[in-house]
């Protein structure tokens, strides 16, 4: 009987405790995430599509979009190749410094992006270590596309490797060994055995890499020099326009970035479902 009493009491606590906790979480999320996101879209569109399209049609705006797309188009393939190589080396080998390598790959997550930008200025800037050399061959890194790309590559470096390592570890080396005993060359093993296995994890990593590449502000802001129409990526354009009271342009660009985030989120959800489905059906 006493046990029963405790049970009833517990259930009663749960009855109002659970909805309360969920309610608090929802209100919290709404206050710090949902309402600001809605505000961005409201500001961008509350005067209708006309002003939005006008802002989007502006040359500086279009240049910012173009630069953002170019940066992402260079960054994503670079980090795809690097991430795959790093993931395979880490998942398939035991060597001294393995954990150190994993921490180094994670470093961009723990360093402030502004510091990343400053590191690049110190290295490639006019008075930086490589400055005189770069000037002698007339190649600009800082305040130019190469600098923006390097900064973006660094800050979005960990995503692919982080997503692929656990999938590769879960897969184990046996399927690759089996393919070798059946005569498959390394590239055949990659295309026919490894890639089909890691594809969802890899795609998810690429998605996150792309989102970060398009959305990065801090590191890019330090190296870009903020030259309107030339070295402004979309996030930098947003900040610049807002500070110059071009509210419509700022919120238009912000809405586009926010939309990118929403699309990323939806794709991520779909991918996670697929991966989970794959995992559960494999066992």
């Amino acid at each position: 009987m006493p046990t029963n009493g405790i049970n009833v009491e517990n259930r009663a606590t749960q009855n109002w405790g659970k909805p309360l906790l969920i309610g608090i979480a929802l209100i919290y999320m709404a206050a710090i995430l949902l309402v600001p996101a809605i505000a961005v879209f409201y500001e961008a569109f509350h005067r209708g599509f006309g002003p939005f399209l006008e802002a989007v049609g502006h040359r500086e705006f279009q240049n910012a979009i173009r630069l953002t797309l170019i940066t992402a188009a260079i960054t994503v393939p670079l980090n795809l190749v690097f991430g795959l190589c790093a993931a395979w080396v880490i998942a398939r080998n035991q060597f001294r410094g393995r954990t150190l390598l994993v921490s180094i790959i994670d470093l961009p997550f723990s360093i402030s992006p502004v510091v990343v930008g400053l590191m690049l200025v110190l290295l490639y800037g006019r008075i930086g270590w490589l400055g005189p050399f770069l000037q002698s061959i007339n190649f600009r890194v800082i305040f130019s596309l190469p600098g923006i790309v390097i900064a973006t590559v660094i800050v979005s470096l960990p995503f692919v490797a982080r997503e692929v390592i656990p999938v590769l570890e879960d897969m184990g080396p046996e399927q690759e060994e089996a393919a070798r005993t059946l005569g498959a060359q390394d590239w055949q093993i990659f295309w026919r055995v490894i890639l089909p296995h890691i594809r969802w994890g890899l795609l998810y990593g690429l998605l996150l890499t792309n989102a970060r590449a398009m959305g990065e502000f801090g590191a890019v802001a330090v190296v870009s020099g903020n030259l309107a129409g030339r070295t402004q990526t979309l996030p930098i354009f947003v900040e610049h326009a807002y500070k110059n009271y071009q509210t419509q342009a700022a919120f238009g660009a912000a809405a586009i970035l926010a939309l990118l985030a929403v699309v990323t989120l939806i794709l991520k959800e779909i991918l996670e479902r697929r991966t989970q489905h794959k995992r559960s059906s494999a066992h």
Binding site: G172, E174, Q175, E177, A178, A179, T181, R192, V193, P196, H197, A282
Partner: peptide
């Protein structure tokens, strides 16, 4: 050679 693994190592996909 032909090799058979303890945990089958079949290609799951």
């Amino acid at each position: 050679i032909g090799f058979v693994f303890q945990h089958y190592a079949l290609f799951k996909h």
